[in-house]
Computed example of a mutant assay.
Amino acid sequence: MVLLFVLGVILIGAAIALLGMALRPAEEAGGINRSIAVLKAMTEAPQELRGELERPFAERVLEPLRARALRLGRRLTGADSAERIRAKLNLAGNPPGWSVDRVTSGKVLFAGVGLVAGFLFSLMVSETTTTRLLVALGGLVAGFFGPNLYLYQLGYSRGQKLQRELPDAIDLMTICVESGLGFDAAVQQVARNTQGPLSEEFGRMLREMQLGMDRSEALRSLGERTNVADVRSFVSAMVQADTFGIPVAQVLRIQSSEIRVKRRQRAEEKAQQVPVKITVPLIFCILPCLFIAVMGPAVINIMNNFS
Rank of each mutant, 00 (worst) to 15 (best):
V248S: 02
V103Q: 03
F234K: 02
M42Q: 12
C289M: 12
Q195R: 09
L282P: 00
P281F: 14
G118W: 02
S233Y: 02
D80N: 12
R264V: 04
V280T: 05
I175L: 03
E269M: 15
A298P: 00
Q47I: 09
A218T: 08
K277E: 00
E269R: 12
V100T: 13
L287P: 05
P197Y: 01
V235G: 01
A58L: 04
I12L: 14
R74I: 00
E27V: 04
C176M: 14
Q265E: 12
L19N: 01
S236C: 09
V261K: 10
I259F: 01
I175E: 03
L91Y: 00
N305S: 12
V231F: 06
V2A: 11
T174F: 02
A218W: 08
I283Y: 15
K161E: 00
K277W: 00
S221D: 05
A79C: 03
A271D: 04
G296Q: 03
R24P: 14
R253C: 01
V177S: 04
V235R: 03
G223S: 08
F244I: 13
R215D: 05
M42W: 11
A15G: 13
A111D: 11
Q189P: 00
L49M: 09
R263V: 01
L162F: 06
V177M: 14
R50A: 04
G182L: 11
L151P: 07
A191T: 05
R55T: 15
A136W: 05
N227D: 12
T128R: 00
R260C: 02
M238D: 06
L219Y: 11
V299L: 13
L89V: 06
E44R: 15
P281V: 11
K40N: 11
I283A: 15
P25Q: 13
G223H: 05
L91S: 01
I12P: 08
Y150A: 01
R225N: 09
T243Q: 04
N33I: 11
V274R: 12
M213Y: 07
N148S: 10
R204F: 07
L76E: 09
G31F: 04
L62W: 10
S199D: 01
S221E: 10
S81A: 14
G114D: 12
